[in-house]
Design a protein around this nucleic acid. Structure first.
Length: 271
DNA sequence: ATGCGGACCTGTTAGC
DNA sequence: TGCTAACAGGTCCGCA
């Protein structure tokens, strides 16, 4: 599921019900996610106030006075706000219950998500420290991307999906941005010109912002904090459109594999 | 350092 | 219709 727009949509959706609230209890039904949920989590969070809720890459950062909970949705995770008690279903692994009566429920069928705890600055955390710039920040520009790409032999698609280069560009939006920029996803990153990197940077920012506006992409099971799907799926130009006509030139969309991920493109519009 | 493949886990779908 | 294999929005790790 979640790429940056879906994580940002989730953050915006749950923030009003979470920020400033006092945690009453944490209910953990399944500890074994990507990494085990720390045993200390319950104790650390009980009676604490969530001071702010931020996002770095695809991590959600729940700040309290004594530490920060890092939550990653992985491939199939979702968070939703419950206004009253609801019987948990099979993959509802964690509830964060607030004094207000609301609770935040974490569901993750594939268990690729994670919940971690740190008392240090979360931006210095081992999993976050090495990450590249935010794609929507000013620091992410064509000068940066062009410089990082020199002498790289890997395909440009896997290059922009590398979180050490830039974060938050997952498989859907990598495909879409390359289409928007007219770049063949198999091009060697080191062979792409500065001018085309400028187009690509603009495309990445545009597609991510546009997807955030539409509440993200729901392919099968993404829901926002209120339990509703995102509507960017209707805007997809190439992703999951194998064999369908390109909206620009009517050529059938091709599908190949790059770095073990499905890759969709128009061989006429993208060279 | 870069680049690649495997691993984690469950559910859905394509194909025989 | 039913079984099996392949695939799915992420990303860490270890190896060459």
């Amino acid at each position: 599921m979640p790429e940056l727009p879906e994580v940002e949509t989730t953050r915006k959706g749950i923030a009003p019900y979470v920020v400033g609230q006092i945690i009453k209890e944490i209910i953990i039904r399944e500890r074994q996610l990507r990494w085990p949920i720390p045993l200390s989590l319950k104790r650390s969070l009980k009676s604490k106030i969530i001071k702010k809720l931020e996002r770095r890459a695809k991590y959600l950062l729940f700040y309290t006075d004594n530490g920060c909970m890092l939550l990653h949705l992985g491939m199939s995770g979702s968070l939703r706000v419950l206004r009253e008690k609801q019987t948990p279903e099979k993959h509802d692994h964690v509830d964060i219950v607030f004094e207000s009566g609301c609770s935040l429920r974490f569901r993750d069928p594939r268990k690729f998500g994670s919940i971690l705890w740190t008392t240090d600055d979360p931006l210095d955390h081992k999993l976050i420290r090495h990450l590249g710039p935010e794609p929507l920040s000013e620091g992410f520009d064509s000068t940066y991307l062009y410089a990082r790409s020199r002498k790289r032999t890997q395909a440009i698609k896997t290059f922009i999906m590398d979180s050490r280069i830039v974060v938050g560009v997952g498989n859907i939006y990598a495909n879409e941005a390359l289409f928007m920029a007219g770049i063949n996803p198999s091009q060697k990153a080191g062979k792409v010109s500065k001018v085309r990197y400028e187009k690509l940077v603009v495309a990445i920012k545009r597609v991510l912002n546009s997807a955030i506006e539409k509440g993200g992409t729901t392919l099968r099971d993404f829901i926002n904090g209120e339990g509703n799907p995102g509507y960017f799926r209707n805007e997809l130009q190439v992703y999951d459109r194998k064999g369908e006509a390109c909206n620009n030139c009517k050529t059938p969309i091709k599908m190949i594999r790059l770095g073990q991920r499905s890759t969709f493109y128009c061989c006429f519009c993208q060279r």
